[in-house]
Design a binder for these strands. Structure first.
Lengths: 138, 138
DNA sequence: GCTTGACTTAGAGTTAACTGTAAGGAGTAG
DNA sequence: CTACTCCTTACAGTTAACTCTAAGTCAAGC
């Protein structure tokens, strides 16, 4: 099975060696092996674990919480329930983020239309209501 | 038209007075008025502008870029094109974020199933492939 | 008239997640 | 042999976005 240096692993994951060393320091790579010369040797399984770590990061999970999960993984079957619950919670978090993103998109799209109309008219005044004494263009 | 103190505005927007002062210091509230005593007086239009600011923040826009937009708003109709382009770009950003969130969700859901199965079996070994010498539980 | 509470400023401190520096080691090309 | 490149550690520096502190102002209630 081929292995990867920290630079190769970084490239494969679109990260930097700095970041990978930082993850290691924070305890996110407990199983990482070293060569006789002390150089980190990333296996395919390490890259897979890092992909999960990046996935959890994308859900907004802080690194300390990810470390808790990594520790659970090292604990074996005793922590299956915690890990299951964690992913269920992450699922709920992502669902909420999706809903929020939809709301955000709705506002952005309204603004796109607003500025499309203003651009066609050549002036934002086209949106001024007669009853509004003052409006903020933002 | 009723106005709001910084504390009231913060509550209405689910922010803190510290944050609103910080935004002001960064130039995000150029039109904010003050009472004779020097106290910030938020109008409805200021709250609306802040809602747009919060919306842009949710798309991951840094505060310095939001300030650029706020400055454009003060510039009047000359900047309509820039503002339109900016919202189009934000729309593309949010679409990309949505796609990424869908990918993330897919991974999370696979892990939910993985741990559901493991939990039913009482052990993660249920997922071990015969050809795999070693796997990372993450 | 005095206390209370919310407001003001300038500026310092915090946090997360990197990001870079310095000093040095090891393997490879010429 | 020597230069080059990548690796190592320890630790300092950076950045964004707050978050708080200190010292002071001001209006309202008792």
């Amino acid at each position: 099975m081929r292995t990867y240096s920290i630079g190769e692993a970084a490239k494969a994951l679109n990260l930097t060696p700095y970041t990978l060393r930082y993850y290691d320091k924070e305890g996110l790579l407990p199983r990482i092996e070293r060569t006789s010369g002390g150089i980190r040797s990333f296996k395919e399984s390490d890259l897979e674990a890092l992909k999960i770590i990046e996935c959890l990061k994308k859900t907004g999970m802080p690194i300390k919480e990810i470390k808790t999960f990594i520790d659970w993984c090292s604990d074996g079957d005793d922590s299956l329930r915690q890990r299951y619950d964690m992913f269920q919670e992450r699922k709920a978090v992502v669902q909420a983020q999706m809903q929020e993103l939809l709301n955000t998109m709705s506002v952005i799209e309204h603004k796109c239309e607003y500025y499309q109309t203003a651009l066609n008219a050549g002036t934002e005044a086209v949106h001024k209501h007669t009853h509004a004494k003052e409006t903020s263009p933002a």
